[in-house]
Design a protein around this nucleic acid. Structure first.
Length: 519
DNA sequence: TCGGTCACGTA
DNA sequence: CGTACGTGACCGAG
């Protein structure tokens, strides 16, 4: 283990034996695993380190919450109260911290303050990073390994490395961006919004609302205007209006206007100007959100409308390789709940076919039943199928019920990989019921993504989308990338879901544009 | 200027 | 059928 702390131009390094002032290239050249307070704020990207332990990322796994700054991370592993923010700190204490920064904190188990962070010798900060890493590792090992037949390292350590890798990957994706065809994307926007001018876009719809003074951007105004034409709806969502397409010509016009308006306001010229530079579309990435630990991205990267995906295009001499995990959440449920019968279904290419046979229903009904079970359905469309799920897969259903109950009584719980799920974050238990599945799926995904990242030669992971990876690779590396995506899933699933009997499947395609060849 | 609501895209 | 997220326009309160 080699800890690295970079502050300005000074670089602090520490091994368990000693701490010293060194250089970034020294850290880059090591074969040791690196420990950093936060991958995001450590300028290691050009060196593409293979193994990094990100204290902030692991902190969030262990303790949840939103803060992950060094003072918070330090306090948590020492079982100290969360420290005040550094700007609340008195000058006297700051001076004290500057004089005798951390040796005292370590000796006495005191708090690590934000001001001390600014003034302390960087090598001391590196030494402290190792202290925190050891305590985090001990805390992880104290958690039970939930696997049926544990193989390889403790699952919670696997999670720590994978979540750390995800944090690093986020910094890389943020820096690299997605290859974006600026000319094509701009032309696409132009064709989708029909008219650049707002009033010109509105005109055809207002025409059909003739005489009425309707504000198209005000839902209640639209609702009232529709009501005057005999279309009585509680809200004006597209899904609801879809049924009234033929009731009045204005409905279809309004729905088309909505799509165009969405592109114009959220994914239009301003969006391109703000987020595309030098042919790359960039957003900010977070490796684990406050809830179940999924990745999030800004700049709309996770909700790019399908029509715009053709603007994500491989650069000359490159291809995009896209890979989708198939039916990942039900498979994860089968693995983490330990339900042997459900796992038997999850050993198949298509999980819903054997489930349908087991329930004695058709495939679409089986799918609804499974989804309803996972997400805590309330109303009765799949009620009967859900009852059958209960008797066919009692272990999986009991697992979900326990998660829901835990949330309802306010008891925190952990995902398969060990992430703390705070009860009371969402509403009435349904949130926790879903979080143990969604969160575990996110962990499997990140573990897979980490192996893929490390296996790429010249290629890069450029997008992570919950169950989908998008790679940008040189043409002559395409075949290797495809093989890598498959083998990485194989090896990840082998230890992550060890002993469960569940198979994870992936659909891979080599394409020029993201929109091509959807699985 | 702020939070809340509606709406809508993705998984 | 539901969970989660980010974004933007508008409303009404302050």
């Amino acid at each position: 283990m080699l800890a690295v702390v970079v502050r300005g131009s000074s670089v602090g390094l520490a091994t368990p034996e000693r701490a010293w002032v060194g250089s970034l290239s020294q850290a880059a050249a090591t074969t040791d695993r690196l420990v950093v307070w936060s991958a995001r704020s450590t300028p290691l990207l050009p060196h593409r380190p293979r193994q990094v332990w990100d204290l902030a990322a692991v902190h969030k796994v262990l303790y949840g919450g939103r803060r992950d700054d060094p003072t918070e991370v330090w306090a948590a592993v020492h079982d100290l109260p969360a420290p005040v923010r550094s700007d609340d700190f008195s000058l006297f204490d700051a001076a004290l911290a500057a004089v005798e920064p951390f040796s005292r904190a370590v000796r006495e188990g005191g708090s690590l303050h934000g001001d001390a962070w600014r003034f302390a010798p960087v090598e001391d900060l590196a030494a402290l990073a190792l202290v925190v890493q050891q305590r985090q590792e001990a805390a992880l090992l104290a958690l039970p390994d939930p696997r049926a037949t544990p193989t390889g390292p403790h699952l919670r350590l696997v999670t720590a490395w994978a979540e750390s890798a995800a944090a690093l990957l986020c910094a890389e994706m943020e820096s690299d961006g997605l290859p974006f065809d600026t000319a094509g994307g701009t032309a696409l926007v132009a064709s989708l919004i029909h008219a650049d001018d707002r009033s010109l876009r509105d005109a055809p719809v207002l025409e059909l609302f003739r005489g009425d003074d309707v504000d198209l951007r005000n839902p209640s105004s639209v609702r009232d205007a529709l009501a005057r034409r005999g279309i009585d709806v509680p809200d004006t969502r597209s899904s609801r209006l879809e049924a009234y397409r033929t009731a009045h010509p204005v409905v279809a016009a309004l729905l088309a206007w909505r799509k165009a308006e969405r592109v114009a306001t959220t994914y239009g010229y301003e969006w391109i100007d703000a987020h595309v530079r030098d042919g790359r579309l960039r957003g900010e990435w977070t490796a684990a959100d406050g809830g179940a630990g999924r990745m999030t991205a800004s700049a709309g990267l996770h909700s790019l409308p399908a029509e715009l995906r053709s603007a994500i295009a491989a650069e000359p001499g490159h291809v995009l390789v896209r890979a989708d995990l198939g039916q990942v959440e039900p498979r994860v449920l089968a693995a983490v709940s330990g339900d042997r019968a459900f796992a038997a279904a999850a050993a198949q290419d298509d999980l819903y076919t054997p489930v349908a046979a087991m329930l004695g229903v058709d495939r679409p009904t089986a799918k609804v039943a499974v989804l309803a079970a996972m997400y805590g359905q309330t109303s009765g469309a799949a009620g009967q199928a859900l009852k059958q799920m209960e008797s066919a897969y009692p272990v999986a259903l009991a697992f979900l019920r326990a998660a829901e109950e835990s949330g309802r009584v306010g008891a925190d719980l952990r995902t398969h990989g060990g992430r703390l799920i705070r009860a009371g974050h969402g509403g009435a238990g349904r949130y926790t019921r879903n979080a143990v599945v969604q969160g575990a799926a996110a962990e499997l995904f990140k573990a897979w993504a980490a192996v893929v990242r490390n296996g790429l030669a010249g290629g890069r992971v450029v997008l992570c989308l919950h169950d989908e990876l998008l790679l940008h690779v040189p043409v002559d590396e395409a075949e290797e990338a495809v093989a890598l995506l498959r083998s990485a899933l194989e090896s990840t699933a082998a230890h992550w879901a060890s002993g469960s009997g569940v198979r994870f499947v992936v659909d891979v395609a080599v394409v020029q544009r993201w929109s091509d060849a959807k699985g």
